[in-house]
Amino acid sequence: MDDLPTNTPPGAIAVRCVGVQKSFAAGETTVRVLRGTDFTARAGEMTFLVGPSGCGKTTLISIIGAILSADAGSVEVLGFDVRRARGGRLADFRLANLGFIFQQFNLLPALSAAENASLPLVAAGRSTRFGERAAAALLARLGLEQHLHKMPAQLSGGQQQRVAIARVLVHAPRLVICDEPTASLDAESGHTVMELLREVALAPDRAVIIVTHDTRIFEFADVIHHMSDGRIERIEGKSIAPSEAHA
């Protein structure tokens, strides 16, 4: 991993996608999901990606998250050209730099909250004790100090999502990718989760990308990319340069 990026200056571009194309085979036809998509996310900002179902949001974040490969275009994440890497190298890149928050939490049901949150550290080779100590500190910061040893089934949806956030942040990734992080939560829990994300996940050298349909949380966005039919249709937000506003 010695040639992987090690830092991202505040305000620097964390993710740059140019002309990304992706198609999927559906029976005998081919569905073009991304049609030359351009996308940018900066460090220190919470970037939202919104749009109707099927417009390509999930495909785009899967490509940015280095778990799906693009057919064409360039994808640079934290200065790393993910299109040139394969297999184990991509896995190492994800483990070291990326964090994912999923709509369905995807916690391991057999592990406690602290054990779930420690997984990225344990996967990276740190000891279980070290991992759980780090996870416990983070869970306490997220208000779950009373629930460290509870199993996911014993936690509410909001609490499970906070465990998922702790799992993402425990190894301090520089890019956090969230897929509908509030979709399974009520308004209050969703609001709490977003406040926590803003408070804990966002830092001057870290970027957060959020795919969502939930208009209740748009207020947390620094930048919103509106996507339609495989392309970024419109960008709005505080730090948008006039040239970027209409992609």
Binding site: G65, I67, G88, A91, R94, Q104, P120, A123
Partner: peptide
């Protein structure tokens, strides 16, 4: 899904 999540996190096939 849990295995998929582990892979997404960066756990290698090995």
């Amino acid at each position: 899904r849990q295995y998929a999540a582990l892979k997404a996190i960066g756990v290698r096939n090995g």
